Simulated scan of single mutants.
Amino acid sequence: MKELLRESFRAAFAQFLEQETDNILNGTSERNLCAHLAPLLQQAAAAAGFAGYRTDVEYNRNQGGRVKTILDGEMREVRITCDLILHSRGKNSAKDNLIAIEMKRLEHPQSEKEKDRSRLRALTKESYDDIWSADGVALPEHVCGYELGYFAELDHGARIFRFEEYQRGNLVDRFNIEF
């Protein structure tokens, strides 16, 4: 599953770069860039067999319309909004969450980037100890279980995106994509 998702992400991102280079170089906001990446990721995921999954920008709702939350490193509840996610919107309790993406420009403060990285570690954790078990029936109270998380840092001067990939709460890979 992870390899199909990874391939879907990379295919969508390549198409995004083909279509949006001028938009990227003009200094458009991350929210705008994610909005243009979203439909491409949804199409690539569907083509890879992930039908029924949706991409959402700045999505902040959980089951029953509650605000999405995670637990931070001290197990405190924190409200979250992720830049871009691929998920089933609670329709597939066996595997609701697939990809979470956070995007920042190089010039943003390091503290903001660290918050995004921390969010991705939390979102990609399998569960929060003794709070939710992955029984495939009930959705978790706090958002977790994303198969992949990507932190994308845009250096538009160098025309490069620097990526970090997260799985199971850990940084597992770094790679660059030039445009």
Rank of each mutant, 00 (worst) to 15 (best):
W132F: 15
T55S: 10
T21F: 06
H36P: 00
G73A: 15
L5Q: 01
H36K: 12
D130H: 09
T28L: 07
V137C: 06
R54K: 12
S8C: 06
E20K: 01
T81K: 13
L84E: 09
L71I: 12
I85K: 02
V78A: 01
Y53E: 02
A138E: 13
G49C: 00
R66F: 15
N97W: 05
E30L: 01
H108C: 03
N176P: 11
G157R: 06
L98M: 10
R79I: 10
A122K: 01
L86K: 11
A158C: 13
P39T: 05
V172L: 07
L40V: 04
R174Q: 14
P109A: 10
E7I: 14
A122F: 09
N23Q: 07
I70D: 01
N23D: 04
D56C: 10
G136N: 09
S133I: 12
I177L: 13
R174W: 05
E74F: 10
E178H: 11
E74V: 04
V143C: 08
E141Y: 13
F179M: 13
A14R: 13
E147R: 14
L84M: 00
E164L: 03
Q167W: 02
L40E: 02
D56F: 11
N62L: 13
C82A: 14
L37M: 13
T28C: 14
E107L: 12
H87M: 03
A44H: 08
L17Y: 05
I160W: 02
R119N: 11
L37Q: 06
A46N: 11
E7H: 13
R159L: 03
K113N: 03
E165N: 01
M103H: 06
L5W: 12
R162M: 12
E77R: 08
I85D: 06
W132E: 02
Y146P: 05
K2T: 14
A14C: 05
G52E: 08
A158G: 04
E141H: 08
Y166M: 12
N60D: 14
E126A: 11
R76W: 06
K115F: 02
K95P: 02
D173I: 10
R119F: 10
E74I: 03
N23P: 03
L33R: 09
L98V: 11
L120A: 00
I131T: 15
